[in-house]
Design a protein around this nucleic acid. Structure first.
Lengths: 193, 193
DNA sequence: CGTTCAGTTGACTAAGGTCAATTCCCGTGG
DNA sequence: CCACGGGAATTGACCTTAGTCAACTGAACG
């Protein structure tokens, strides 16, 4: 149950046996069905989440259209960080796409862990830095690359997304329409023949 | 000389008199001419910078084209954070656009300040969070909004950019070609008549 | 089965890119 | 002080690409 999250922490920081015990004592398990909401855009995000199993999607609704910002899979760590950190609503919807088992830590618990051990502070800082880098990369990729190239790179770098996510969500993730993605797919397929 | 940077820190954290003295003792002043390089993409960024006066541009070179990522003005705080934090080259070029006076802090000095006082750690975390939020916003804006809308919002939210930056750089910042920006401008102007 | 919704396809439209020509602006040197 | 040169900005004509709209197919589920 807790092996995977401990491994995740160990990658970014060093936890003493005591740290591990403290962390585990604060974690709660949540089981959700397919297509359940985890957070709505007008809510404050009070938790950070670790995915034991399942798939989760971040999206915003703009002019009635759902714009997918990110997908998360088993062993990913996520939160609406902006909301979590600022304690204000973050304009972000979070849903499950499949049945999902989450481990959650509340804001208060995170603060207590920070007080308990500098290892947790280091973890928090690194997570923040990681996500910061990730969004810079996503931004420049969107600014600079064509939809086709972004699709091909998604194929190469995140085959899970291609494999498990419905096309219309991938399209909105790439910033294109489902029809365009459908044509891209055909084009790519043909170029292999 | 140091008033502005102290004010900047005060907005995000609380510095004791001692903290302020320590900070000032580590700051170095750098004066640069128009169009000088501050960082090249294959270099490791060893400093964080505060702009006393002047204008600075972040850009990447992709297929021989300069893609502008950000502009900074007086009272802004910047660094190639990814490079600074990871101690690796960050694929980012930084130039001045005008004569510029900078205050700089080295990586080592930042680490020492972190040790000296938790106030600096708080500052570091908040900067990181601020930039993280900023890039999420930029990303979603790029994903969701039309060039015209992004131009209009730039006009409203960052008039300094419109006022002081040459069009071809604004175009690359918006992710469009100079010709397209030129046409957008005309269109917007006409719609006011 | 039949309904529903995702996915595909076709025909057309619109938006932005490309290329080339021209004009504008500004700094420099005569 | 003026003329010139060069880069920036604008404009026009045309092209490419993605979006739109509508029809159709197909798979999933009750």
């Amino acid at each position: 149950m807790y092996d995977k999250i401990l491994a995740y922490y160990s990658n970014l920081t060093t936890l003493s046996h005591n740290d591990e015990k403290a962390l585990i004592s604060k974690l709660k398990v949540i089981n959700l069905k397919k297509r359940e909401s985890i957070l709505k855009e007008d809510q404050i995000c009070d938790y950070v989440y670790f995915i034991n199993s399942g798939i989760v999607r971040f999206y915003q609704v703009v002019n009635g259209e759902e714009k997918t910002l990110e997908f998360f899979f088993a062993d990913d760590y996520f939160s609406s960080y902006e909301s979590f950190l600022t304690r204000k609503p973050g304009n972000l919807n979070i849903d499950t796409l499949t049945d999902t088992e989450l481990l959650v830590l509340s804001y208060e618990d995170v603060q207590e862990l920070y007080k308990l051990s500098a290892s947790f502070t280091t973890f928090g800082r690194k997570i923040s830095e990681m996500y910061f880098s990730k969004y810079i990369k996503k931004y420049t990729s969107l600014l600079v690359k064509s939809p086709k190239r972004r699709y091909l790179e998604l194929h190469k770098n995140r085959p899970k997304v291609i494999q498990y996510i419905p096309s219309y969500m991938i399209a909105s993730y790439l910033g294109i329409k489902p029809e365009t993605l459908s044509r891209l797919k055909k084009e790519v397929l043909c170029s292999y023949n």
